[in-house]
């Protein structure tokens, strides 16, 4: 027991030396007081808040387990420590600069969260945050994560804001749908540039969409010109066939020959633009695959599998249709 005690003090001593002299603030978080929710839920929410606080990288956090050990060694009961004075006292025992305490309450179906950051040195309240939340208790997790950033006067990450907006369940469901190269390729197969959008490559997406639209527009224009010429030629052909004098026949025959030349030209243009559009489309599919999202090897549809028939291992490839 003495060895443990020495080790704890040694850790505490080293912790103080290491971080005490730096500009980074040391912070400890007291278990949030549960008012209307059970202690287990309050403990879980405190854990999540502490974890997220650590993610802000703005302070050095005393691990909660370690904090409990130290307080226990000092004969201090954390339970019931809800006042600022108590928080300051605990902070002093831990040797931290700031203490965070709070309470999570429930009235009807509305939850309230009140957090407070107290300076151990002055005993003054430096920051307070309050949030009112309506909904399932699960949603409190996101609220706690956002509060961790806001308490440190930081802007919460976009992912957290999105998680709050979408709801945790929908957000997590979306996160599990990993983007794949095949997914990008399939989308580009459907609409040129769609796969690049899916991969987040907007410049390429606009390039392929724009090029495709341009070629299709030119092809349609050529087709329209072709149709117009075809219509003129049909009319000239009717007149030619109805003509019985040589002069009329020659006039309409010349017209038909000239229109035929224009028709060939319009058809060549149509073919050129169509092939260009098709080539761009194929390139867009290849590009979508090559520049598609990087995948974990585990998520690739290729498996090394034992084949009981051939009694050997082989690569199996599959694609979901």
């Amino acid at each position: 027991m003495n060895v443990i005690k020495i080790l704890i003090y040694l850790y505490f001593f080293l912790f103080s030396i290491t971080y005490g002299q730096s500009e980074i603030t040391t912070v400890a978080v007291l278990d949030f007081e549960a008012r209307g929710i059970n202690a287990l839920e309050a403990g879980t929410l405190t854990d999540r808040f502490t974890s997220e606080l650590n993610n802000t990288n703005t302070m050095r956090l005393v691990e909660r387990g370690m904090m409990a050990d130290i307080l226990e060694e000092q004969g201090f009961q954390q339970t019931g420590c809800t006042t600022d004075e108590c928080a300051v006292e605990v902070g002093a025992l831990l040797g931290v600069q700031k203490m965070i305490s709070g309470a999570i309450g429930k009235i009807g179906s509305t939850y309230t969260i009140d957090l407070k950051m107290v300076s151990v040195q002055t005993g003054a309240t430096e920051e307070t945050k309050s949030v009112t939340y309506m909904g399932k208790v699960d949603g409190l997790i996101t609220e706690m994560e956002i509060l961790a950033w806001e308490l440190m006067k930081l802007k919460p990450p976009q992912a957290l804001v999105l998680k709050k907006r979408m709801g945790a369940e929908a957000y997590l469901s979306q996160q599990t749908k990993q983007k794949t190269k095949i997914g990008a390729m399939t989308r580009s197969l459907l609409i040129p540039g769609y796969g690049q959008f899916y991969s987040g490559n907007k410049k390429s997406a606009f390039f392929f969409m724009g090029t495709q639209v341009a070629f299709l527009g030119l092809a349609l224009n050529s087709q329209s010109k072709f149709n117009s010429l075809q219509s003129d030629q049909d009319a000239a052909l009717l007149s030619y066939n109805a003509s019985v004098t040589q002069s009329d026949i020659e006039t309409y025959a010349t017209k038909i020959i000239n229109l035929d030349s224009d028709l060939q030209s319009a058809n060549d243009q149509l073919t050129l633009f169509s092939i260009s559009a098709a080539s761009t489309w194929v390139l867009n599919i290849l590009h979508a695959y090559i520049s598609g999202p990087d995948e974990d090897l585990a998520s690739l549809p290729v498996y090394l599998a034992y084949n009981p028939v051939s009694r050997g291992f082989g690569l199996t490839w599959s694609i979901t249709l």
Binding site: Q223, Y240, I249, A253, I257, D260, N267, T271, S274
Partner: peptide
Amino acid sequence: CENDVTGVDDLLDN
């Protein structure tokens, strides 16, 4: 996306 263009010789049959 390609049209069949009938040759002039086939058209001129008056």
